[in-house]
Design a protein around this nucleic acid. Structure first.
Length: 187
DNA sequence: AATTCAATCAACCGCGGTCGT
DNA sequence: TACGACCGCGGTTGATTGAAT
């Protein structure tokens, strides 16, 4: 049997210090992302693996954008959310340099309010239905049997084509999600 | 200047799916 | 095949910051 994830009695909680960040960065730069369970001890961190993973993915990863969301990113989030609902990781997978947590926070703090006020007149559900319908038509034209979920067969990374000027994949073609192993390039 | 309120965002928690024993 | 740990995800919380009074 496996050992427990972590001993919560001996782990730090709350905000990360600069030293902790540096330790995590140094370790991952040397060894790469791997077994989060053993990482804290190996890196000399008094954190649970889950916390390390979250810190790295949401804040420390070098490919993260730290600037605000652009208009095309916001538009894409709205469209993807109409299709997928709260599947933040899938939505974030279509937005290079963005994390699921970031997208989720942005939706809850900005977009939702914006939509609620701006679409009060025509009805948000109607807008959502229209977007879904349009996407479904497009998808079914390509392959009717693949309308299941947005594909992460490329590991959630955008294809080179159909990109906006800011590098966002605006192609909403849908397909059957691939196995996790095939998309495990995030590890 | 002090206080209150709202907005933002990093981090935690709990759950479900997957995988190892 | 069953059990339990690991991993990733979505929901939620709490600390911080800025605006309003």
């Amino acid at each position: 049997m496996r050992k427990p994830c972590c001993d919560k009695q001996h782990t730090n909680k709350g905000a990360w210090s600069q030293q902790e960040d540096q330790k995590l960065i140094d370790y991952i730069q040397k060894h790469g992302e791997g077994c989060w369970r053993s990482l804290p001890q190996a890196a000399g961190l008094l954190r649970c693996g889950k916390s390390c993973r979250l810190r790295w993915r949401n804040y420390l990863r070098p490919d993260l954008k730290r600037d605000g969301f652009g208009e095309d990113e916001e538009d894409l989030i709205i469209r993807l959310h109409a299709l997928l609902g709260n599947r933040w990781s899938l939505i974030a997978g279509r937005l290079p340099g963005r994390t699921d947590n970031e997208v989720k926070n942005y939706w809850n703090s900005h977009i939702r309010k914006k939509l609620e006020s701006s679409h009060r007149n025509i009805g948000f559900t109607r807008l959502r239905a229209e977007i879904s319908s349009a996407a479904r038509s497009k998808s079914q034209a390509n392959d009717p049997e693949t309308f299941v979920a947005v594909s992460d067969s490329n590991g959630g990374k955008p294809e080179p084509s159909n990109k906006s000027s800011s590098g966002i994949n605006l192609d909403l073609t849908l397909s059957i999600p691939s196995k996790k192993l095939e998309s495990s390039d995030e590890n």
